[in-house]
Nucleic acid binder design. Structure first.
Lengths: 360, 360
DNA sequence: GCTGAGTGTTTAACCGTTTACAGGAATGGG
DNA sequence: CCCATTCCTGTAAACGGTTAAACACTCAGC
């Protein structure tokens, strides 16, 4: 007999539905039905049961319930890190919506390590969460797509749905939901903003070929240049590896040290890079926006502090939408795809370019 | 017969331990034992089972396992919000340690609402997580203590342990683990730092009576003043309600507008307040540290950006320690209490006070 | 008085694991 | 050659819920 608590040891045991039934003088089935509320019951019985529940401080055992075939009330989100503002905001949106729908939220971090991602998805598969939301930026190669498709199928079998957040869709045959936001459009809009202010030599800080988010942003940058008939100079695109503040500082410092300044504006691939670049500019005696105009992308905390004109990304809405779509049972197996809009936020980091007046 | 999937419908069903057993030609008990690894088994059998597991892509059902009496592999953390840097860092520490020990991490947010906290703890009680870590700042009144004690007892009955992070202990009779950090010591140290630089009129921004964290910080501030025999002027303590950047800006602006400046240094209750105060000072043409010295508390992202001398709080270690202690089964029911140290980080926001040279 | 409909409750099967106990096949000692 | 010992594997009983189906009861209609 695999009883954990033998009768003689006095360790208190959480009260079960059986205890409640006994206490209320009804059967366990009645208690279950009254608690789930999905069945008519006599007011008297209902009262007795509710009183017993209160008196015994009963809470259902989530595992027993899950085992009995009721979808567990939880969604999961997997991010690289919870301290990174973008992920934190998406996670907050997921939390909000999950709480609103009475769900718990499981959070997994991978630190960008595919092995840990695999291990996490495995654990989540065991958990049978309603949805597994993957948010983050991964190289968009075939191996990656294959892996995501595997996740999607495995999770679908376990009754969970996979939601890809801020990643490109996988194809209609893969049972996954995709919630994206418009990187290309945002980059196009803010590049146009700089171009309209007369800037023609715009340094792009943070190219990272093969990664979908930076790729889309630089595509918007190039498209805007083309639309304004401004020649595209590949030498103005600077590669980044980590896309953080330190790297922004490094890129800008190296650029300034490499020779005379050949740009009047800077488009940083995200706000962290912008913050780092701004610091490097100032160290070299260049003011923003006085000497150099600067824009970023993301509209995250540092942006407001340094008065940065940037592209607003609906981080929290991304998370909320992911949960809403995943929990929307109208279209069970369908693979859906939503694209959220972005828009520029004008602060005070751009000035008209006076160095080289537009030739008439 | 409550079968969900009737034979005719082709919806794939996750493979169970029974499928694996059948596939490998052994009994379910053997599979279970081999997978748990806690029992000797013949290499041949082991090979067959592992192959079946691979071929069927089997993962155990966490609910069935939990129900069968195995402690679920998950810890939970409850915070006000995941976008707030302090909580985010603590959560990151929890994540790290949890992942290191092969655990999943459930995160709940309350938005500071006691009702949501209650609801979350309830849901977590159902979940039977190994540990429930509560981090945050709540009014330290009797009602609150009573509620925490209730949580602790209820969770203990469900087999979970309550960990209070950055909150004061509840007493030895309550089965809770407490992980604190030294607010008073840090505030004392950084106030001394200002005093040593010759500042005697130090404005404290962010008093919030009744809340333990601000209370401890202001206690350190007062103690340092006393230790240096500098008179304590209550008019130099400014109350805050929300303790964020905006409020720091407001407090400083109102103070500067209210009359002539009667302080040479500012001790902000946290780095966000410091950032806001710094912005307000600059708007009034006062430079930091040229005209006014400024220090904060927490050592979170804005601090580095604005070169703020502040008190470092071991956020992530707080989270890691919480998990470690909770999972340490050497001392099962014991209520433990750990206090982590803090130390000041000197950057460039303090200058010696020249306005009023120390009288000899 | 009997049937039938309509309520409200109970009985019992089932979810997928773990594990105490029983059982069977080698192995070795006498 | 028999029996004790060791080693592995199988059987079956929990774990704590949900729910289809059977059942009891009340009351209306004929």
């Amino acid at each position: 007999m695999p009883r954990r608590a033998t009768p003689e040891e006095g360790r208190p045991r959480p009260s079960t539905i059986r205890d409640v039934a006994r206490h209320a003088g009804v059967s366990v089935a009645t208690v279950s039905r009254i608690l789930s509320g999905s069945y008519p019951s006599a007011p008297a019985t209902r009262g007795k049961v509710m009183r017993a529940v209160r008196e015994l401080d009963y809470v259902a055992n989530a595992h027993a319930r899950g085992l009995a075939g009721v979808r567990p009330k939880s969604v999961a989100i997997v991010v690289t890190s919870v301290v990174s503002p973008h992920y934190a905001h998406v996670a907050q949106g997921v939390q909000d919506q999950a709480a609103r729908e009475g769900r718990l939220c499981i959070v997994g971090t991978t630190g960008g390590d595919p092995e840990r991602e695999l291990a996490t998805v495995r654990l989540l598969r065991e958990e049978h969460a309603e949805a597994v939301i993957l948010v983050g930026n991964m190289p968009a190669d075939d191996a990656y797509r294959e892996r995501m498709a595997d996740y999607a199928r495995a999770l679908a079998v376990a009754g969970s749905r996979l939601v890809l957040c801020g990643r490109p869709p996988l194809g209609d045959d893969v049972p996954a939901i995709v919630v994206e936001y418009d990187n290309t459009g945002g980059a196009h809009a803010i590049t146009s903003h700089l171009l309209s202010a007369g800037h023609k030599r715009i340094l792009f800080l943070g190219r990272r070929t093969g990664y979908t988010t930076p790729d889309s942003r630089i595509a918007g940058y190039r498209a805007a240049l083309a639309a304004h008939r401004v020649p595209h100079d590949p030498a103005l695109e600077v590669d980044s590896v980590v896309m953080d503040r330190r790297d922004g500082h490094r890129m800008m410092r190296e650029r300034l040290d490499a020779g005379p300044r050949d740009f009047t504006a800077v488009f940083a691939g995200n706000d962290l890079i912008a913050a780092g670049a701004r610091a490097a500019l100032r160290e070299r005696g260049l003011s923003v926006p006085g000497d150099v105009s600067l824009v970023g992308f993301d509209d995250l905390p540092p942006a407001d502090d340094i008065d940065l004109t940037t592209v607003h990304v609906p981080h929290e809405e991304l998370g909320r939408t992911a949960v809403r779509l995943a929990l929307d049972t109208d279209t069970p197996g369908a693979s859906r795809h939503v694209m959220l809009g972005t828009h520029i936020v004008v602060r005070d980091s751009v000035r008209p370019n006076l160095e080289e007046p537009p030739s008439p």
